[in-house]
Design a protein around this nucleic acid. Structure first.
Lengths: 235, 235
DNA sequence: CGCGTCCTTGAGAGTTGTCAACTCCAGTGG
DNA sequence: CCACTGGAGTTGACAACTCTCAAGGACGCG
């Protein structure tokens, strides 16, 4: 049952510090429906495998992913790990942590983030009912996602979990049937409550069945979506 | 892997309909921090095993539990079930369901609820930033709880899950070391991602180890909290 | 080109699920 | 009042899915 994943300690000397640029506006455009936040944000970059914040840190900020991929995770005392969610460009992280962070956040790839002071966001929400509503609705969406994931973790088989995962990533990505997996297999395993080996075996089995193609470890083509949906347990 | 739980179809003739009393104020006092909602609520009662709402129904209302216990659950096509949460007196349910309910809600015991029209709550939240903030914070709390439960489902052993469950219920209940389990074993199993048999076996094992006493199936005494915390995986 | 990390596959072990039998208890009806 | 009944709870024997441990292969980076 032990599942130790040691953080990769290799760090690029250039990027090992968190480079804070005081540009107050991101060049990538408005923050989705949260454009009002733009002026109060700070731009940050993190290198691959760098920690963005740690479980137990004061939750003074929200972050929005500008580019790259982030994971949030929780650890048990003996090192067993669970990944709560993957965050891609445009996703907000840390919104639910009120006093201190309940999860740690780590950069899976090199990452660019916008950082917003929680106090400032709260202040704006007190003034702007529309912003407050959008925050509520984002939180509601997260709860609904969590319910789906709990069903997956509590009741789905390994094959169903992996198939559901591929469909989820495909839905969140740009291409309908071609997906990019920036995270290693053990991250997928910790997200799905499995081991690396089991994830690999299921992927191989799906490949042999012709449901997917795996040109390289980071790229997967969905060849037969309906078969995946069948394996994934049409909810 | 099949885990069919057929709803108990026995219903008291007297209580089979949902009795709507048009009293607009509950006699049990203010709605926690949501006292402002009181005047817009309606009182309802449901009999044991009655459905309060179903997955897919329009989510037109919030509910607050006045007395009794409620479960919210999600089903897979073949009947496998997951219980997302148990709701006791004072708990709100359905807040996260925006368009339609993502889970169904069922009465575990006879239940009294207050029902609030979602539209009215939204309208009040637009006017009252304090209410909006309390709703946000309740949602954030639910997300944090869900993260803890996902860690349990994804990475804890059967013994750890049951021990964590006992501690959770004890913390949410009135007594520190005496807990009341209104739900049957298969509800606990579906909450923890286990089977009834495994839940029973772990409880028996904890009883033999002297960590708990089980005077009857619905009542459990925590005799050695620190041992439970150890088994439950501290943190 | 060599090293390290990640990925993949195999063999065997272990935890939990499945199936089955029995007990317990509450509610029911004689 | 008590036997009957059916669902829930408990326990045992066995099966199976997933994990563990191990080894080899692929790929990227220096």
């Amino acid at each position: 049952m032990l599942n130790l994943h040691f953080a990769n300690t290799r760090k690029d000397a250039l990027a090992s510090a968190c480079n804070i640029n005081l540009h107050s506006v991101t060049p990538t455009g408005p923050t989705g429906e949260f454009g009002a936040l733009e002026p109060v944000g700070t731009r940050l970059t993190f290198a691959r495998d760098e920690e963005i914040y740690s479980e137990g840190d004061d939750a003074k900020h929200w972050h929005k992913v500008v580019s790259g991929t982030v994971r949030t995770c929780k650890l048990l005392a003996d090192g067993r790990r669970h990944i709560a969610r993957f965050f891609f460009a445009g996703d907000f992280l840390g919104i639910e942590d009120v006093g201190e962070h309940a999860l740690s956040a780590e950069a899976i790839t090199d990452v660019v983030l916008m950082r917003y002071a929680r106090a400032a966001v709260e202040r704006m929400a007190e003034q702007d009912p529309g912003l407050a509503r959008r925050v509520r609705e984002m939180a509601f969406k997260r709860i609904a996602d969590a319910h789906g994931h709990m069903l997956l973790l509590g009741r789905k088989t390994a094959a169903e979990r992996v198939a559901s995962f591929l469909l989820e990533i495909a839905d969140r990505g740009d291409h309908e049937s071609q997906i990019d997996l920036p995270m290693p297999r053990y991250d997928i395993a910790d997200y799905l409550g499995l081991t690396t080996e089991t994830v690999c075996r299921v992927l191989s089995s799906l490949r042999r069945r012709g449901a997917i193609a795996v040109p390289n470890a980071q790229r997967i083509h969905l060849l037969n979506r309906s078969e995946l949906e069948e394996v994934g347990g049409i909810h």
